[in-house]
Amino acid sequence: MIGVGVLKGMAVTLRQFVGTYPAGRVLLKALHLPEGNGIFTISYPETKQQHAERFRYFPFLVYDATPDNLRCVACRICEQECPPQCIHITMAKDEQNRPLKANGRTFPAQFDIDVSICMSCRICVDVCPFEAIEMDNRHEIATHARGPELLFDKTELLRSAEYFQQIKPTEAAVVNQRLVAKAAKSQPPKPAAASTPPAA
């Protein structure tokens, strides 16, 4: 029958229309009709979407216990691997140009990430031999201008290992496992030796 398809289509849209109102849903239920999908959108600043655990935006630097106990040794692998080249690292050195050490490791004097350039690819996390860099899920970082506001330096990028544990429990568990395994491997033969980077 010609024209029935047209009416059927219109019935679908009307049902979706009615189904977005609470009273309409009651009406549809009373008429034994499917209720439609209802309102899909969320009113953003008031209600926020619960994003997936694996959601990522830009990297942060992990520290253990205290903020000066960085895992990063300023090896600059991530800087070299970063496809859009948004990471900039300088190692802390003394006047003789010898690397300074804290907690038995070298550390970055400067660690900048230009968040406006970062493309959230997570390559820096994959290449880091020390699990020193992880992906953050912070995303509400809009500013009024490009430039310095979005160039995050070391202090802005620092996050504790607990924070990592908190935002990404599954990933953190895997990382912790790796760290424990690494510590067990490096401990027995030569105690108190500098940790050697394992094969990535």
């Binding site: 979706q16 439609g36 209802g38």
Partner: peptide
């Protein structure tokens, strides 16, 4: 508004 409701959105609000 009407189109938005038909597409399960809220429309201008």
């Amino acid at each position: 508004k009407i189109i938005a409701r038909m597409q399960n959105r809220l429309g201008p609000n």
